[in-house]
């Protein structure tokens, strides 16, 4: 049983072939799985492990170290709000509070607090599926997120790949 589509299985083999040692492909393969499924499922962990000749526990151990991989169910829109210091003095924490409250019941929007996103000249900054939006206010951020929800903006995959 494969968790990758046949097309992505080919891509996965190409990715493994880029590296002198297969184990280096763990991170990109996990990204591929998340781009396809909207999260990293236990089945994907097993398949990645088989592709790089590791135990699933090893891949899970690596996967759980990195904040971008979501392991608790499919995500449609991941909204990442920075609250580190340059955003802190420009309203980042307030933006995070507002958005996490507004979307607390929404099944398709996950609001997370993240560390510095390296765009401090446009603080406060947030991302939607890793697409940057700066100089945000509560109102402008809500409008932007609603545009993704309505389809007016095309969301990237949760790992950043463009959705068709």
């Amino acid at each position: 049983m494969s968790s990758f589509t046949p097309e992505n299985r080919d891509r996965a083999r190409e990715i493994v072939a880029r590296y002198p040692f297969a184990r280096s492909a763990v991170l990109p393969l996990l990204h591929l799985a998340q781009e396809q499924d909207g999260w990293v499922s236990p089945e994907a962990i097993e398949e990645v492990a088989a592709l790089v000749d590791q135990e699933p526990a090893q891949v899970l151990g690596t996967c759980s170290f990195y904040t971008m991989y979501k392991r608790d169910g499919r995500k449609e829109l991941v909204v990442s709000v920075c609250t580190n210091v340059s955003c802190l003095v420009n309203g980042g924490p307030e933006l995070y509070e507002l958005l996490s409250e507004r979307y607390s019941e929404a099944g398709d929007v996950m609001v997370e607090e993240v560390e510095c996103l390296a765009a401090c000249d446009t603080a406060p900054v947030f991302q939607v599926n890793y697409e940057f939006h700066g100089n945000a206010t509560g109102e402008s951020a809500t409008t932007t997120i609603e545009e993704y929800r309505s389809g007016a903006r095309v969301p990237r995959g949760v790992s950043g790949g463009k959705r068709a």
Binding site: R18, S24, L27, H31, Y66, T67, Y69
Partner: peptide
């Protein structure tokens, strides 16, 4: 020379 772009996953 081969050049590989390797994507991180969120770890300072």
């Amino acid at each position: 020379l081969e050049v590989v772009v390797h994507r991180g996953a969120g770890a300072y």
